[in-house]
Design a protein around this nucleic acid. Sequence first.
DNA 1: GCAAGAAGTGAACCATCATTCAAAACTTGC
DNA 2: GCAAGTTTTGAATGATGGTTCACTTCTTGC
Lengths: 199, 199
Amino acid sequence: MAYRSTERVKARLSASRERIIAAALEIMAGHGYAGCSIAAVAERAGVATGSVYRHFPTKAHLFAEVFRTASQREVDAVAGAAARQATTAAQVSAVVETFAGRALRSPRLAYALLAEPVDPAVDAERLVFRRAYAELLAGYVAAGMASGELPPQDPELTATALVGALAEAMVGPLAAGVAGPSTIPNLVTVIHRALGVTP
Amino acid sequence: MAYRSTERVKARLSASRERIIAAALEIMAGHGYAGCSIAAVAERAGVATGSVYRHFPTKAHLFAEVFRTASQREVDAVAGAAARQATTAAQVSAVVETFAGRALRSPRLAYALLAEPVDPAVDAERLVFRRAYAELLAGYVAAGMASGELPPQDPELTATALVGALAEAMVGPLAAGVAGPSTIPNLVTVIHRALGVTP
DNA sequence: GCAAGAAGTGAACCATCATTCAAAACTTGC
DNA sequence: GCAAGTTTTGAATGATGGTTCACTTCTTGC
């Protein structure tokens, strides 16, 4: 037994893995999923194509993780912003503003995460992403109902519908390239009304 | 000049073209876009694979047309149902009920049209489909504002958001396979609130 | 019936990449 | 330095399925 991987090597492996994920994310944010061949990712990460397969069994696995990483970052940002608010109305405003603001600031990435055609196995990860938002929102809706701030409703359904509304409202502008300054406030208003926030 | 295509031949060509589109649609409704190879479509239409290319330059062109056909049918059904109503509230109810009812009755097709991963060129057609719904809704929203039935708002944005809400609310049930009997009425309620329909 | 042209055929072709793998380079403990 | 094992490499492989094309079959006008 003359060799046994040591901490230093493990750290390098792990760093390599991270670089691959980062490279994939960068290419996705720059050229969309379409531009993400394994060869391109490997080159950007500074490794050989074959090395990618030491870390991920298939391309789908790699991109599932890329999606998961990027999505988690988004959800965390939104959840963090919402958590700082006290009322349901303010929490929902924070969700919408954070979600939309970030999407408009990184349109290419947002498009890739929300709507770009991807491998079916990766698409599944997108559902998880959307569900995470829905569950975040559903929590606030349920709390709002409990406190009497919102009328009785099915929190899951409302939350799902709102996630769809948010995503769709972003994809349009992202494709068209422009969103007026009133887009976000108007969206907040619509969504407040949908929830039944008393004005 | 010994040959010049005649009416009879033109009719046969056209019939062939229609059969190809119909076959593609049937396979899509049965097995999703994933199961739609040109070979499978050709076989179902009763022609050779090469013949498909007499009618469509590429697979993407064929399926763009398939999507267009199917989408138009959906939009027409929804528009027809809404047109029979007098108030904005009733028109919007008709849109939601017709859209959702049809989707739940043909879940596989609905999933393919709404959310299944497809070729990017075909995906573009999906945007047209969604935009058609959005424009239909925007018209009713604008009319409702004009009549005072709805509060002031950006009809385009509201309509876009509602299309997203509808689609998202359908994709979950379509994937899971079930939608409770209260899904549609609840969805109508949420959307009425979003629009600001006075109860 | 025949020539000219159009439509139909389907097996072969080919481009694209994800994936593999044999060899090379590197690590480790002694 | 060496043996044993691990990681890296990147060109070759291979699967998929859209697309082509040389050939056959059909249609038309005379």
